[in-house]
């Protein structure tokens, strides 16, 4: 299950969905994720900001809980940042129930296969890179 280049099954499906659709449809799909962004669960404490970010970047907050050895991530992203909300929503969905080992095995550039860099430009994938780095840091704490 933790082969070094594999993605958690649901994340793999999501990446494939993006991969097979064309330009404009990729953005529509990301928007759909943004629109379905789930509310932050009431039983969890509101998390601290992920990192202190320069004010022209989007602040992202994240929390995770572990049930039976599997991770469940939750995010808070401002409503007026649908691009980053879309990233966070698809990561939440794609990583639901993954083990820390599976999360840590995700290649740092896995999202390039989705092809969003062709419609959003590469710089705008920074949010995706940052979210991945953060979920991995959280997964690593489970193994220590």
């Amino acid at each position: 299950m933790t082969d070094s280049n594999s993605l958690p099954a649901r994340l793999e499906e999501i990446v494939n969905d993006f991969e097979v659709c064309e330009g404009r449809e990729k953005l529509e799909m990301l928007l759909d994720y943004a629109r379905s962004f789930p509310p932050f669960p009431g039983h969890l404490q509101r998390p601290d900001e992920m990192e202190e970010v320069p004010e022209c970047m989007t602040p992202v907050q994240m929390a995770a809980e572990v049930k039976d050895g599997a991770l469940y991530y939750y995010f808070l992203v401002p409503e007026e940042s649908p691009t980053v909300r879309g990233y966070a929503a698809l990561m939440m969905e794609g990583l639901k129930g993954s083990t820390p080992e599976q999360v840590l095995a995700i290649p740092a550039d896995f999202y390039l296969r989705m092809g969003l860099q062709h419609v959003l430009t590469a710089q705008r994938l920074n949010g995706m890179a940052a979210i991945l780095a953060h979920v991995k840091r959280r997964a690593a704490t489970e193994l220590n």
Binding site: E51, E55, N126
Partner: peptide
């Protein structure tokens, strides 16, 4: 016109955002 921490040099960029 940046925020104070960007001006002083305390805050450079966030980890994972190297391109910016």
């Amino acid at each position: 016109v940046r925020s104070t921490k960007e001006y002083t040099g305390e805050l450079l960029h966030m980890p994972g955002y190297p391109q910016e």
